[in-house]
Every structure is written in structure tokens, then in C-alpha cells.
């Protein structure tokens, strides 16, 4: 029996009928074709599916689609504003904060959540903030460097910092 769900995704109102057992990540990927949000585990350990829901980062594999009814959701596809890379995206590129790219969308969304709360984090705060996001390629070294760089850029306001919606 399908439930009707209405949500705002990346600024766009979306409606969908879903089976109650379906996860937010499944609806994002399969119904809305937002395949930038990835699935890399089945135990909520990896963080590859991290998105923002009503302004907070969530693992979209632990949210039922019906729980997101009425919510505002931002995915990696919605982070860049007006065709400009978000400073965190730019910093990941600049600092080689990714290799295979599979964990990257979730990692960036977690970083965005951190920097919205803690504008000038220490390395230790950065490492703890991405504790729920696994990366097997980078050893986290350049991810930490990228988030640190993004914090500086967002401070100095040299790039758009309005990309975090919701």
C-alpha cells in the first residue's frame, strides 16, 4: 500500500507514492534520478548517502521516505548555487580530497553540516565530524585538508556560501 509523500528536494517540490518500507535514499536515487547520493553499506556505517534534511545532515539510508514527508532535502546535486561550485566542493577539487569519488558526495554533505555549525573547526573537530563517513582511498589526509581550506574560504567570503539550502 503506497503512501503519498510531498517534499522539497534541492528547492523543487516533489510528490511521490512510495511503499512504506522504502528508504529516502531509494526514492532520491530511483524516483528522482538523484544518483549522486550513494549507497555503500547496509548497516548505516559508511555515510555515503548523507544528505541534509531540514538543515541537518542525515544518513538517507536510515530515513524512511514517509518520514521525510513535508521535509526540505538537499542532496549533493543541490549544493552548488547558480552553477558555482560550493566552497567545499571547490576545496575538495583543489586539495585532492577525493580519488574514486564514491564517498565524496556524502563526505561533502557532512562537511557542509560541520561548517554550518562550526565555522572554524580544528583538525580534530573535522576528523570527528566525518567519523561517520568512510573513505577507503584517501586515508582522510586530503579530506581534512580540503575541509580546512573550505572553512577559510567561507570565512573570507571569497566564494558563495549560500549553497546550503534547508
Amino acid at each position: 500500500m503506497a503512501e503519498h509523500v510531498t517534499l522539497v528536494v534541492n528547492g523543487q517540490r516533489r510528490e511521490v507514492d512510495v511503499e512504506p518500507r522504502r528508504l529516502l535514499v531509494e526514492v532520491l536515487r530511483e524516483d528522482f534520478d538523484l544518483t549522486g547520493t550513494h549507497v555503500a553499506c547496509d548497516t548505516s556505517q559508511c555515510g555515503a548517502c548523507t544528505v541534509h534534511m531540514d538543515g541537518q545532515s542525515v544518513k538517507s539510508c536510515t530515513v524512511l521516505a514517509v518520514q521525510a514527508d513535508g521535509a526540505t532535502v538537499t542532496t549533493i546535486e543541490g549544493l552548488a548555487a547558480g552553477g558555482e561550485l560550493h566552497p567545499i566542493q571547490a576545496a575538495f577539487w583543489e586539495k585532492h580530497g577525493l580519488q574514486c569519488g564514491f564517498c565524496t558526495p556524502g563526505m561533502i554533505m557532512s562537511a557542509a553540516d560541520l561548517l554550518a555549525r562550526v565555522p572554524d573547526p580544528s583538525d580534530q573537530q573535522i576528523r570527528h565530524a566525518i567519523h561517520g563517513n568512510l573513505c577507503r582511498c584517501t586515508g582522510y589526509h586530503n579530506i581534512v585538508a580540503a575541509i580546512r581550506e573550505a572553512a577559510v574560504t567561507m570565512h573570507t567570503g571569497s566564494a558563495s556560501d549560500s549553497g546550503i539550502v534547508g
Binding site: 549522486g36 550513494h38 549507497v39 566542493q89 575538495f92 577539487w93 569519488g101 565524496t104 558526495p105 561533502i108
Partner: peptide
């Protein structure tokens, strides 16, 4: 900087499940 990265940092990669 890597030429692959723009697609990966914007969620536009094309992995098997995509």
C-alpha cells in the same frame, strides 16, 4: 587538479548502480 573531479564533486559520476 584532476579532470575527473567536477563530475564526482557534483554528484554527476556514473557508477554501475547509477
Amino acid at each position: 587538479k584532476r579532470r575527473e573531479d567536477p563530475r564526482f564533486i557534483t554528484g554527476a559520476g556514473n557508477y554501475i548502480d547509477d
